[in-house]
Simulated scan of single mutants.
Amino acid sequence: MTVGRGLVDALVAAQGTRLSTLDPLVPPVSDPPDGDVVTAALPDGSRVAGVLRHQVHERMSAARLWSATEVWELTPLLGGAGAAGMDALLRAWRRRLDALRPAATDSACVLTWPSRDVEATGVLLDHGFVPLTVVAVRRAAPPPEPPGVTVRAAGPDDLDTVLALALAELRYSAQVGSTVLRPEAAEVKRRALAERLAAGGPAWLAERDGIAVGLAECSLVTSEPGNWAATRLPTGRWGYVNCVSVPPGARGTGVGRRLMAHAHRELARLGTVGTYLYYNPPNPLSSVFWPRQGYRPLWTVWEVRPAGALR
């Protein structure tokens, strides 16, 4: 490192604090490895940094079985900065690569970062990174059932509560997938939810001490010859899980599992042959939660962002 020791220590400490609040299983942040330093300034005058390491694997190296031959790997030091810090550092990396001229083929830029930092996920997607590999862990025991949680049907009088939870899910999903947080989102959601609740559409609230800690908002879809659903689903009546939202303070306590167990029972009681939903693989919550509830991929939607990046 050629930047000052004081800056490195400050970035390491602040980064450790931030990441530990996002995921308690992330280990303490250590000093970065040796390599070329990349720095970037933020609008408030603070700085972020990273260490860039270059490696070319030999032709007979086992590493070439799971890696490009030429690899440029960046270790970020963002301190307490979130999306803005990652964006600034990646832009500086792009400028550095313009000067370094990596190989046109069989080369890669690599960056490892905590999965639950959804702010960073959105930035990495914007810069063209694809989540190809994860380091996965499993705790020895499942989380306990949430104490004192009840599940009930949501009705028209619950519109404000349902809307708040639905918008919270929308804001989160916009960071990690195809969801777009539009200025009209609240108005559009309110209108749609008001109509659905007034019509008695299937929606449930999980509550603890009278306070909503989860939402499952669903609908019923019939797949029959000639309609759109038949191009995606086997024939029959299906439950569509449109939105499931658990606020941060209640996540990881079993609320979502309890809520969906209730929703699945009720949707089956309504005569459905199964349920379906959409989730984004880069979402570090959905990509774990839904497979545990028994869901498996049926179709995959691929995107290039932006459209001009199609190659």
Rank of each mutant, 00 (worst) to 15 (best):
T112G: 02
A263P: 09
R53S: 07
R5M: 09
D23M: 10
V304F: 07
G45F: 11
V130M: 07
R311C: 03
T121M: 10
G214P: 13
H57T: 00
T150R: 10
R208I: 01
A229S: 06
A92W: 00
G35R: 03
P76V: 04
Y172R: 15
T300V: 14
V26C: 08
G177R: 04
V26R: 01
G294F: 04
A268N: 00
N280K: 05
L42W: 11
S286C: 10
L270H: 10
D31K: 01
G80R: 12
G271P: 01
R292V: 09
A198P: 01
A81E: 14
L90I: 05
R171G: 14
P33K: 06
R95G: 11
A206C: 08
R138M: 08
E195K: 13
R292S: 13
L277Y: 00
R91C: 03
A203R: 05
P146I: 00
L165R: 01
L74M: 03
A136D: 12
S115Q: 13
R190K: 01
A108N: 08
G45S: 13
Y295R: 05
A84V: 15
V151S: 09
E145H: 14
P297K: 00
R138Q: 12
R5K: 08
S67Q: 14
L97F: 14
E303T: 08
D23Y: 09
E70N: 05
A307D: 06
M60A: 12
L167Y: 01
Y276V: 13
V134P: 12
V56N: 07
Y276K: 04
R305A: 06
L259Y: 00
D209C: 10
D87M: 07
T150D: 09
N227F: 04
L165H: 00
V246W: 05
V188W: 12
W302E: 15
P291M: 03
L267P: 04
A168T: 10
W238G: 00
E195V: 13
G294D: 11
V12K: 02
N283R: 07
A63N: 13
T39Q: 10
R257D: 12
R196F: 13
A261I: 02
W290I: 09
T275Q: 03
L270S: 11
L310W: 12
T161Y: 09
E303D: 10
G252M: 07
G148A: 05
R191W: 06
A174Q: 01
V134H: 15
A309I: 08
T179H: 15
R182Y: 12
G226E: 00
E207H: 07
V149L: 11
G252P: 14
S107Y: 06
V37T: 13
R251D: 05
L90K: 00
T275S: 05
S67G: 04
G148I: 05
R101Q: 06
E195I: 11
W93I: 07
L170Y: 01
G85M: 12
E73F: 05
Q55S: 08
A229R: 13
A154D: 02
H57M: 06
